[in-house]
């Protein structure tokens, strides 16, 4: 009878779990493919959207859902630039540093922004609002230089426009400058 004496395990608040809506989405994603593993990239996008980043506990949760080992999932997460192991800012500013954007001055924009916000890649401003990253060609070379913030592209930028964009983010209503 020793077993019954074992106290009921407390639910671990660290353990992530999809909301009902996300779980529905997850189930739908699986139906699109002829192999379960093929859904891994979209499931990771879903998990990152849901939990903010792909931390160890999220990776373990996804691994369990996908019948994979955490190592298999980690390997995939670390291969792709868009997956984050740590939370990013509310406005994640991604500067394209490749040729056409570089020719149009993206390095200066990037430097100005880092010094204005006082952060480098991998860091988040203390208020949690901003993070920065250097990225490669975003397929927008004809409207260079460009910064991607979360799901939107901001094109044909210059220092003034970028400042206006950042100000509007600070005010909580990002505007295309």
């Amino acid at each position: 009878m020793a077993n019954s004496a074992v106290p009921e395990q407390k639910p671990d608040r660290e353990t992530p779990k999809f909301s009902n809506e996300a779980k529905k989405k997850f189930d739908e994603l699986l139906t699109r493919y002829d192999s379960k593993r093929s859904a891994l990239l979209p499931v990771l996008h879903l998990a990152q959207d849901e939990f903010g980043s792909l931390s160890d506990s999220v990776v373990e949760y996804v691994a369990e859902l996908m019948d994979l080992s955490p190592a298999q999932v980690t390997e995939v997460v670390s291969f792709y630039h868009m997956y984050h192991r740590h939370p990013v800012g509310q406005h994640h500013l991604q500067f394209c540093m490749t040729l056409s954007c570089w020719m149009a001055g993206s390095h200066q924009l990037y430097k100005n922004t880092c010094s204005r916000l006082g952060i480098k890649p991998g860091e988040v401003t203390p208020d949690g609002k901003f993070s920065v990253a250097k990225v490669e060609c975003l397929g927008s070379c004809g409207s260079a230089p460009i910064v991607q913030v979360n799901e939107a592209y901001y094109e044909n930028l210059n220092p003034e426009k970028l400042n206006r964009l950042i100000n509007s983010c600070k005010e909580g209503e990002p505007q295309t400058p």
Binding site: K25, P42, L46, E50, N150, E151, E155, C169, Q175, T176
Partner: peptide, 17 residues
């Protein structure tokens, strides 16, 4: 299938002529 942030409404076609 994408989380909608404050930037969602600024998504638009490429800004070239």
């Amino acid at each position: 299938m994408m989380r909608e942030t404050q930037h969602h409404r600024n998504m638009r076609p490429m800004a070239v002529d």
